[in-house]
Design a protein around this nucleic acid. Sequence first.
DNA 1: CCCAATTCATTGACTGGTCAACCATTGACA
DNA 2: TGTCAATGGTTGACCAGTCAATGAATTGGG
Lengths: 156, 156
Amino acid sequence: MSSAAAAIDDPLITTFGRLAEAYSRMEQWLGSALESETGLPHVWFEVLIRLGRSEGEQLMMSSLADQIALTTSGVTRLVDRMQAAGYVERRPCPTDRRVSYAGITAAGHDILERAATVHARNLRTAFDGFNSQDLATLDAALDRVREAASGLPRQS
Amino acid sequence: MSSAAAAIDDPLITTFGRLAEAYSRMEQWLGSALESETGLPHVWFEVLIRLGRSEGEQLMMSSLADQIALTTSGVTRLVDRMQAAGYVERRPCPTDRRVSYAGITAAGHDILERAATVHARNLRTAFDGFNSQDLATLDAALDRVREAASGLPRQS
DNA sequence: CCCAATTCATTGACTGGTCAACCATTGACA
DNA sequence: TGTCAATGGTTGACCAGTCAATGAATTGGG
């Protein structure tokens, strides 16, 4: 009899725990560094970089929500704040009056550039001991996880 | 002149983005699955498993805070709720009257067992395509990240 | 020994997100 | 073409966390 191999000790739970811890520690450090050095909260940076990389430097509110893992409601409020700060603006869609684009402004572009530089530098510090081989391995592994997660049945 | 190799496209930023996305998608799916199947929010599970794995099945409030990446203030309130639900109890420390331990109760133990089983099963689904070699690689990579993050200067 | 500095937990005020209900617009189809 | 379901975004009510201030207990140096 396989003596109560408690589910509590399942190695997959530990693996996921590692993922959680790796992420949150990184996020905590990088996030607070970025904010203190540029005044930009990490979520804002996340929004700006997404917009900056998109066609026309704009994105539908709902796509943005999807990309940064927030509710559309949450994005509405987030964009409200960023708009008030002048980094982002709402643009109507010419062909569908329901949709609203969030587009990056000149000021947003500016600070994005600056923040990206700072962030990249901090990341280089954080991943100090990693050579390009290590990074490639990490990227590949994370990509597989990401993909696996994306293939999961949408929240039922 | 190396044509504006914008920091925006720095590969490390993308790597970190992958980490964030991998984590939050997994968390989203696993979290909502766990909660809908057992009624236990993922953070609660996180608390219980930490307590369950500790000496005496209890942990100082501040250690708990550290482990689940929350403020001690946040933990105070979280434990309040879990105590009200009967899964956890506060225990005084005999040698230092400042500290308070959060300890798991019988009910907490019960639901932890059940939730761990469910969670482990879900994880097996999520990591379906991964063989043990893949998992070992992933574990190793995550561990390095986790360690790198831990070695970073504590939030200044 | 005692006082100053530190540590642990909690609380008040607030913030940034969620969920559910809503309105406007669009698309499909009888 | 008129209606009905689906989609996109916003809003009200609420909740779970943060930060800063506080109280209580402990520690260490003079």
